[in-house]
Lab assay of single mutants.
Amino acid sequence: GKELVLALYDYQEKSPREVTMKKGDILTLLNSTNKDWWKVEVNDRQGFVPAAYVKKL
C-alpha cells in the first residue's frame, strides 16, 4: 500500500520542484531516500518537502 505522511508545519514551496502543504495535511510519500527532502504527492502534484516538516503515519 501507499505510505502516508502527516504535515507537522505549513510549508510554502520555494522552487518548482517543491510543493506547498498545510499543517495537518496527509500526503502520499513517494520517496524518502534523501534524509533532508522527501518526495510527496499532494492534490495530484508531486514534489519535495523538507523531511523535518513531515512524519510517517
Score class of each variant (00 low, 15 high):
Trp37Gln: 03
Val42Ile: 15
Lys23Asn: 04
Arg17Leu: 14
Val5Pro: 01
Glu3Thr: 14
Met21His: 01
Val54Ala: 03
Arg45Gly: 05
Val5Cys: 12
Lys2Pro: 14
Asp10Ser: 09
Asp36Arg: 13
Val54Pro: 01
Val54His: 01
Asn34Lys: 07
Leu8Pro: 00
Glu13Cys: 12
Val19Arg: 02
Leu30Asn: 02
Arg45Cys: 06
Arg17His: 14
Lys23Phe: 05
Tyr9Cys: 11
Tyr9Val: 13
Leu6Lys: 08
Gln46Ser: 11
Asp25Asn: 07
Lys39His: 12
Asn31Asp: 15
Asn34Leu: 09
Trp38Gly: 00
Gly24Pro: 00
Lys22Val: 09
Asn43Cys: 11
Gln46Met: 10
Pro50Cys: 03
Glu18Val: 05
Val49Trp: 01
Ala7Tyr: 01
Leu6Ile: 15
Leu30Tyr: 04
Val5Gln: 01
Asn34Trp: 07
Asp44Cys: 11
Trp38Leu: 04
Met21Arg: 00
Asp44Gln: 11
Ala52Glu: 10
Lys56Leu: 15
Gly1Pro: 15
Gln12Trp: 12
Leu27Ser: 02
Leu30Lys: 05
Leu30Thr: 06
Leu29Tyr: 02
Trp38Arg: 02
Leu57Gln: 04
Asp44Met: 10
Lys14Leu: 09
Glu3Met: 12
Lys39Ile: 14
Lys2Val: 13
Pro16Trp: 10
Met21Gln: 01
Gly24Tyr: 05
Leu4Glu: 06
Leu57Trp: 09
Val54Gln: 00
Gln46Asn: 09
Gln46Asp: 07
Leu30Val: 12
Glu3Val: 13
Ser15Gln: 08
Leu29Glu: 00
Gly1Met: 13
Glu3Phe: 11
Arg17Gln: 14
Thr33Trp: 09
Lys56Tyr: 11
Gly24Val: 00
Arg45His: 08
Arg17Met: 14
Asn34Pro: 05
Lys56His: 09
Tyr9Phe: 13
Lys2Ile: 13
Lys22Gly: 05
Lys23Gln: 10
Glu13Ala: 15
Lys22Tyr: 12
Gln12Asn: 14
Val42Tyr: 14
Val19Trp: 05
Ser15Met: 07
Leu6Met: 14
Val40Trp: 00
Tyr11Leu: 01
Leu8Met: 11
Ala7Gly: 03
Pro50Gln: 02
Gly24Cys: 08
Leu30Gln: 04
Glu41Phe: 07
Lys39Asn: 07
Glu13Arg: 13
Lys2Leu: 14
Thr33Gly: 10
Lys35His: 11
Arg45Glu: 05
Glu41Gln: 14
Asn43Glu: 13
Val42Asp: 10
Lys2Ala: 11
Lys14Glu: 09
Thr28Ala: 10
Gly1His: 13
Asn34Phe: 08
Trp38Thr: 03
Glu18Asp: 06
Lys14Gly: 08
Leu4Lys: 14
Asn34Met: 08
Ile26Cys: 06
Val5Arg: 02
Tyr9Lys: 15
Gly1Phe: 13
Val54Asp: 01
Leu8Trp: 04
Lys2Phe: 13
Val19Leu: 15
Lys35Val: 13
Lys39Gly: 05
Ala52His: 13
Ala51Gly: 05
Ser15His: 13
Leu6Ser: 05
Thr28Phe: 11
Leu57Asn: 03
Leu29Val: 07
Ser32Leu: 05
Val49Lys: 00
Val54Trp: 01
Val19Cys: 08
Val5Lys: 01
Lys35Ser: 11
Leu6Gly: 02
Pro16Val: 10
Glu13Ile: 06
Trp37Phe: 06
Gln12Asp: 14
Thr28Asn: 09
Lys23Pro: 03
Val19His: 04
Asn34Tyr: 10
Ile26Ala: 03
Ile26Phe: 06
Ala7Gln: 01
Lys56Met: 11
Arg45Val: 08
Met21Ala: 02
Glu13His: 09
Leu27Asn: 01
Tyr53Ile: 06
Asn34Val: 05
Val42Trp: 08
Leu8Ser: 03
Trp37His: 04
Gln46Ala: 12
Trp37Gly: 00
Ala7Phe: 01
Asp25Thr: 08
Gly47Thr: 02
Lys56Arg: 12
Lys2Trp: 11
Leu4His: 09
Glu41Trp: 07
Thr33Ile: 09
Leu27Ala: 08
Lys14Gln: 13
Asp10Pro: 06
Gly47Pro: 00
Lys2Glu: 10
Asp36Ala: 13
Ile26Asn: 03
Asn34Thr: 07
Lys22Thr: 10
Leu4Arg: 10
Val40Thr: 01
Thr20Met: 04
Tyr53Met: 13
Glu41Asn: 06
Lys35Gln: 11
Gly1Thr: 14
Thr20Val: 03
Trp37Thr: 02
Pro16Gln: 10
Glu18Gln: 11
Lys35Cys: 10
Asn31Ser: 13
Thr20Phe: 04
Glu41Asp: 07
Glu41Lys: 09
Asp36Gly: 10
Pro16Met: 09
Ser32His: 09
Thr28Ile: 15
Asp10Gly: 06
Ala52Asp: 09
Asp10Ala: 07
Val42Asn: 15
Asp25Gln: 14
Asp10Asn: 09
Val19Glu: 01
Thr28Trp: 13
Ala52Tyr: 09
Leu27Val: 07
Asn43Phe: 12
Lys39Ser: 08
Ala7Arg: 01
Asn31Ile: 08
Glu18Asn: 05
Asn43Gly: 15
Asn34Ile: 06
Gln12Ile: 14
Gly1Val: 15
Ser32Arg: 07
Lys55Arg: 13
Asp36Thr: 14
Lys22Ser: 09
Leu29His: 01
Lys22Gln: 10
Arg45Lys: 12
Met21Lys: 00
Leu57His: 06
Leu30Ile: 15
Asp44Val: 05
Leu57Thr: 07
Glu3Gln: 14
Met21Tyr: 02
Val42Lys: 15
Tyr11Pro: 01
Pro50Ala: 02
Thr20Ser: 15
Glu18Cys: 06
Val49His: 00
Ser32Gln: 09
Glu41Thr: 08
Phe48Gln: 03
Gly47Glu: 02
Lys22Leu: 09
Ile26His: 05
Asn43Leu: 13
Met21Phe: 10
Val5Trp: 08
Lys55Glu: 13
Leu29Trp: 01
Lys39Asp: 03
Lys56Ala: 08
Leu27Gln: 00
Val49Ser: 00
Lys23Ser: 08
Glu13Pro: 14
Trp38Ser: 03
Ser32Asp: 15
Leu57Ala: 05
Leu8Cys: 08
Phe48Ser: 03
Asn31Tyr: 07
Ala51Val: 06
Leu27Cys: 09
Leu4Asn: 06
Gly47Tyr: 05
Trp37Leu: 04
Thr20Asn: 06
Pro50Tyr: 03
Leu57Lys: 04
Tyr53Arg: 05
Asp10Ile: 02
Leu8Val: 09
Gly24Asp: 06
Thr33Phe: 10
Lys39Cys: 11
Leu29Met: 04
Glu3Pro: 12
Lys35Ala: 14
Leu30His: 06
Val49Glu: 00
Ser15Arg: 09
Ala51Met: 05
Lys23Thr: 07
Lys22Arg: 12
Lys2Cys: 12
Asn43Ile: 12
Pro50Asn: 02
Glu13Lys: 14
Asp36Met: 11
Arg45Met: 07
Ser15Gly: 13
Ala51Phe: 03
Ala52Gly: 12
Glu13Asn: 08
Trp38Phe: 07
Pro16Arg: 09
Pro50Glu: 02
Phe48Met: 09
Glu3Ile: 13
Val19Phe: 14
Gly1Ile: 14
Asn34Ala: 09
Lys2Met: 12
Trp38Ala: 04
Tyr9Glu: 10
Ser15Thr: 13
Asp36Ser: 12
Glu41Pro: 00
Met21Val: 10
Gly47Ile: 05
Val40Asp: 00
Leu29Ser: 02
Leu6Ala: 07
Tyr53Leu: 14
Glu18Lys: 04
Tyr53Phe: 13
Arg45Gln: 08
Glu3Ala: 11
Thr28Ser: 09
Asn43Pro: 12
Asp10Tyr: 06
Glu13Gly: 15
Val49Asn: 00
Tyr11Gln: 00
Ser15Glu: 09
Arg45Asp: 04
Arg45Ala: 06
Tyr53Trp: 07
Glu18Trp: 03
Thr33Val: 10
Gly24Lys: 02
Leu57Ile: 15
Pro50Lys: 04
Leu6Tyr: 11
Leu30Trp: 06
Leu27Gly: 11
Tyr53Asp: 03
Leu8Glu: 04
Leu4Phe: 15
Asp44Ser: 12
Val5Phe: 07
Arg45Pro: 01
Lys35Met: 11
Lys35Gly: 09
Asp36Ile: 15
Lys2Asp: 08
Lys39Met: 15
Asn31Val: 09
Met21Glu: 00
Met21Trp: 02
Gly1Arg: 13
Leu30Gly: 01
Gln12Ala: 14
